[in-house]
Amino acid sequence: MTFSPSAQACSRLRKVPLAAAACLVLAGCSGGQEFAYHPVDEIPQGAGLVTDEGGEFAVVKWDPRGRSKSSPETTVSAPSPDAPRAAKSTSGITEAATPE
């Protein structure tokens, strides 16, 4: 097998753009808003038993350059570059504010 698609494979692939074109017509006519589809077999989004809306714990969290952010809700104490970890809680475990 070569990485280049064969002529036969290209012929089959013609069906994919047809389906895409049908969706494009639908999308173009409706002027919709994008949303991120979440697969059914993945860990569900949203709050968990011990997490809030972000749904994840940030076990280690630090400013990448050892400087604090400007937004007040995420301000952390300015650490030195040698000790960059600045967790919000005393336990060193904070909750991720937003999912990726």
Partner: peptide, 24 residues
């Protein structure tokens, strides 16, 4: 190898999502 096309969009409170793929 494979190739896939995904689509997800909301329209006036309705949501539509779709995907197609080809696998060699």
């Amino acid at each position: 190898w494979d190739v896939a096309l995904r689509f997800a969009q909301g329209f006036n409170g309705h949501k539509f999502a779709a995907a197609v793929s080809y696998v060699d």
